[in-house]
């Protein structure tokens, strides 16, 4: 149930709705719970038809850099 799925925004429909693609399946999702703007190509977590979080791409890259450092210790 608390299974949120990472999905890619493939179209912004307006009125707080976007179309997202989840492993090839396209469906509509509500963005009214997101405080930040989403645009095409963004990655979001979708849970029961609502976007609940947006992937922080910079943070993801930084994480990976930190891991590399950690693993090389």
């Amino acid at each position: 149930m608390c299974l949120a799925i990472p999905a890619r925004v493939c179209e912004v429909l307006g009125n707080n709705m976007v179309k997202v693609e989840i492993t090839g399946v396209v469906r509509e999702a509500d963005t009214s719970l997101l405080s930040e703007e989403v645009k095409e190509g963004d990655y979001v977590l979708v849970h029961t038809g609502f976007c609940i979080s947006k992937l922080d791409e910079e943070q993801a890259k930084e994480d990976l850099k930190l891991w590399d450092e950690l693993l090389l210790e």
Binding site: A4, L33, I52
Partner: peptide, 10 residues
């Protein structure tokens, strides 16, 4: 849990 209840709240 909270993941779902916020959506119900909306």
């Amino acid at each position: 849990f909270e993941t779902t209840s916020c959506i119900t709240a909306a």
